[in-house]
Deep mutational scan, measured.
Amino acid sequence: KFNKELSVAGREIVTLPNLNDPQKKAFIFSLWDDPSQSANLLAEAKKLNDAQAPK
């Protein structure tokens, strides 16, 4: 279960257009550290992506 959630969340995070590479890497490392938090980490990444969207 975690492997699928981890890969789905990881793929989504790397495609978020408004995150820079260090931010993406930080989220990916957090996913590896605790795969059970993949849904929460993906939600946080999406929030940050939205907040950094060009206005």
Rank of each mutant, 00 (worst) to 15 (best):
K1Q: 11
K1Y: 14
K1D: 09
K1T: 11
K1V: 12
K1P: 12
K1W: 15
K1M: 13
F2N: 08
F2M: 10
F2D: 08
F2C: 15
F2L: 10
F2Y: 11
F2E: 12
N3L: 13
N3W: 14
N3Q: 10
N3G: 12
N3S: 12
N3I: 13
N3E: 13
N3H: 13
K4M: 11
K4L: 12
K4R: 13
K4G: 10
K4N: 09
K4W: 13
K4H: 12
K4S: 11
K4I: 13
K4P: 11
E5I: 12
E5N: 10
E5K: 09
E5W: 12
E5P: 10
L6Y: 05
L6C: 14
L6T: 06
L6K: 03
L6M: 10
L6N: 04
L6G: 04
L6E: 04
L6W: 09
L6Q: 06
S7P: 07
S7I: 12
S7G: 10
S7C: 14
S7R: 07
V8H: 12
V8F: 10
V8N: 11
V8P: 12
V8G: 08
V8W: 14
V8I: 13
V8T: 13
A9M: 09
A9F: 10
A9Y: 11
A9D: 03
A9S: 07
A9E: 09
A9G: 03
G10V: 15
G10E: 15
G10P: 00
G10M: 15
G10C: 13
G10Y: 15
G10A: 15
R11L: 13
R11N: 08
R11A: 11
R11V: 08
E12A: 07
E12K: 07
E12H: 06
E12N: 04
E12L: 10
E12I: 14
I13G: 00
I13H: 01
I13V: 04
I13C: 03
I13A: 01
I13R: 00
I13L: 04
V14M: 15
V14S: 11
V14W: 15
V14E: 13
V14Y: 13
V14T: 09
V14D: 05
T15V: 08
T15L: 14
T15P: 00
T15Q: 14
T15G: 14
T15C: 14
T15D: 12
L16R: 01
L16T: 01
L16K: 00
L16A: 02
L16C: 02
L16Y: 05
L16G: 00
L16V: 00
L16H: 03
P17R: 04
P17N: 05
P17T: 08
P17E: 07
P17W: 03
P17I: 06
N18E: 02
N18M: 01
N18Q: 02
N18S: 03
N18D: 02
N18W: 15
N18L: 01
N18R: 00
N18Y: 15
L19H: 00
L19G: 01
L19V: 01
L19D: 01
L19W: 01
L19P: 01
L19Y: 00
N20D: 09
N20C: 09
N20W: 05
N20G: 05
N20M: 07
N20F: 08
N20I: 05
N20R: 09
N20K: 10
D21M: 12
D21K: 09
D21W: 15
D21S: 08
D21E: 14
D21L: 12
D21N: 09
P22N: 15
P22H: 15
P22K: 15
P22M: 15
P22F: 15
P22L: 15
P22V: 14
P22Q: 15
Q23W: 02
Q23H: 01
K24P: 02
K24C: 04
K24R: 07
K24T: 02
K24F: 03
K24L: 04
K24Q: 01
K24M: 03
K25T: 10
K25D: 10
K25E: 13
K25L: 14
K25Y: 14
K25N: 10
K25M: 14
K25G: 05
K25V: 11
A26W: 14
A26R: 08
A26K: 11
A26Y: 15
A26F: 14
F27C: 05
F27D: 02
F27M: 04
I28Y: 02
I28Q: 02
I28S: 02
I28L: 12
I28D: 01
I28W: 05
F29Y: 12
F29E: 12
F29Q: 14
F29M: 12
F29W: 12
F29P: 02
F29K: 14
F29A: 11
S30I: 09
S30W: 14
S30R: 15
S30F: 09
S30E: 08
L31A: 01
L31M: 10
L31Q: 02
L31T: 02
W32V: 07
W32S: 05
W32Q: 09
W32A: 07
W32L: 12
W32N: 07
W32R: 04
D33W: 09
D33C: 13
D33M: 14
D33L: 15
D33Q: 14
D33F: 13
D34A: 05
D34Y: 06
D34F: 05
D34P: 04
D34I: 02
D34R: 04
D34C: 12
P35E: 04
P35S: 03
P35R: 00
P35I: 04
S36N: 07
S36H: 06
S36C: 05
S36R: 07
S36K: 09
S36P: 04
Q37V: 04
Q37P: 02
Q37R: 09
Q37N: 13
Q37F: 04
Q37L: 07
Q37G: 05
Q37W: 03
S38P: 01
S38E: 14
S38R: 05
A39G: 08
A39P: 05
A39D: 10
N40P: 04
N40T: 15
N40M: 10
N40K: 14
L41K: 04
L41E: 00
L41P: 01
L41A: 03
L41M: 04
L41V: 13
L41G: 01
L42A: 02
L42W: 04
L42D: 00
L42P: 00
L42E: 04
L42I: 10
A43C: 10
A43N: 08
A43Y: 09
A43R: 07
A43W: 06
A43G: 04
A43Q: 10
A43E: 10
A43D: 07
A43V: 08
A43T: 09
A43S: 07
E44H: 05
E44C: 12
E44Q: 12
E44S: 06
A45I: 03
A45Q: 00
A45K: 00
A45G: 01
A45P: 01
A45N: 02
A45V: 00
A45M: 01
K46P: 00
K46I: 10
K46N: 09
K47F: 07
K47H: 06
K47W: 08
K47D: 06
K47P: 01
L48P: 00
L48G: 01
L48W: 04
L48N: 03
L48H: 02
L48Q: 03
L48Y: 03
N49T: 02
N49A: 02
N49W: 03
N49D: 04
N49I: 01
N49H: 01
N49S: 05
N49C: 02
N49L: 00
D50W: 05
A51I: 12
A51V: 07
A51P: 02
A51H: 07
A51C: 11
A51Y: 07
A51R: 08
A51M: 13
Q52G: 04
Q52F: 05
Q52N: 04
Q52R: 04
Q52T: 02
A53L: 06
A53V: 06
A53T: 09
A53D: 10
P54S: 08
P54W: 05
P54I: 09
P54D: 09
P54R: 07
K55Y: 12
K55S: 14
K55N: 13
K55H: 12
K55W: 08
